[in-house]
Amino acid sequence: MTREQFTSQVEATQGALRRFLIALCCGDAALADDIAQDAYVKAYLSLDRFRDDAGFGSWIYRIAYNCFVDSGRTRREHVDVAMAAGMHSDELSDSRFRYQALYAALARLSERERTAILLYYLEGYSIKEVAEIIGASQDAVKQQLSRGRFHLKGMLHERE
């Protein structure tokens, strides 16, 4: 894959990937962008290992998920979201905190549950694809989805 081909793949996927990462980082858009940049740079560095049959989309999501895990800033984002969840929406811009309740609920899920839920429900990947992206078995993904669903629903109902 040439640089031009890579760039066109990035242009096609960056919007969805950044949206997914924003949700994964529970609303921290700057962190999400940093992780997205990291993911694309790592993908560019390992283009030789990319096989076309794997599909660029799921490949970049796998790299992005690993970058997110590596970033090790999960604890910080939990604190931020917990703080954000405590604020009233009229204190801050509506557009930024439109998804405040969702982010706060997502922040209380484990990393794996959150990733599985987002890949399955937000990005529409199948259980098999989610398993490949996060490097787990399909049974484990089913469990994570089930637990994630249960927690998410419980937390959102709590807030209502």
Partner: peptide
Amino acid sequence: FNPPVGDSRNFMNRLSRNL
């Protein structure tokens, strides 16, 4: 779910510099 993702052009420019 459709949060604002920031300017795509800025993102691509930053990535281009990295590449």
